[in-house]
Nucleic acid binder design. Sequence first.
DNA 1: ATGTATGCAAAACATTTGCACCTGG
DNA 2: CCAGGTGCAAATGTTTTGCATACAT
Lengths: 141, 141
Amino acid sequence: MQSSDLKKAGLKVTLPRMKILETLESSSEHHMSAEDLYRSLIDSGEEIGLATVYRVLTQFEAAGLVERHNFEGGQAVFELDRGEHHDHLVCVSCGKVVEFYDATIEERQEAIADEKGFVMQDHNMTLYGLCNDPECRKKGA
Amino acid sequence: MQSSDLKKAGLKVTLPRMKILETLESSSEHHMSAEDLYRSLIDSGEEIGLATVYRVLTQFEAAGLVERHNFEGGQAVFELDRGEHHDHLVCVSCGKVVEFYDATIEERQEAIADEKGFVMQDHNMTLYGLCNDPECRKKGA
DNA sequence: ATGTATGCAAAACATTTGCACCTGG
DNA sequence: CCAGGTGCAAATGTTTTGCATACAT
């Protein structure tokens, strides 16, 4: 499928790389940690090393194929870069991730960076809360 | 000074705790990592263990005395909680941290969480860019 | 062929924890 | 005095790296 994307990035089209892309593509939760990916592949009977997963994800990030997010909880999560910028809403109870985009916020961010004399290169905005699952709502402090 | 704050939190007023509070208060960069604090104290001739720094910071965070931020770069940074919520602008070249608050963004965040069925509990917004130091500007990609 | 990728094991970090000793109230 | 705090060293969890082997082109 996107073996062309790999070539474009100067990366050889190998089985582990294709499998990782496929998994990120097909997973219902399209935000996965390196460990999630590794487990998922091992469970599917693939032969792959955790180190390879990390290496491949790092290369994919550099190539702009995936994005890395450092949500709370130690492990970084990765998602395919579909080219549409968005931010995240994460449920602190069940871990569900919802994406959103808000033009007003994006504008304000640019304006603020400018105001403070910065040339903005990137930003990270993550909202944490409880999603509408009753199980999660129970845990409300 | 704020030994009262410690007592209020049910924490004994010990030398390491006071020193850590003082250092966070007096440091020009008031965003410091556990390692920064440790080094700073050791360099001042204090006797303290890195584990204590981490333990104390974790307790302070739980007590609402400090805030922990997970900026890019592996190490968490801590700052005194002065009770005024703000977000951060971080220079990717020199590490400088500038604080800001934008009511419009805060409102939009609430509205978005609501719209998606979430009860927002917290958020993290960090803008990354190059500050106005000429040295940093040179590194513009 | 030949340079790149991979898997494994070991290393590198940031952070946490167990435990014997010390200290504040 | 005694619960709680501290320092050290060892454990943990995540991510990275060295190296010999395997694979894509």
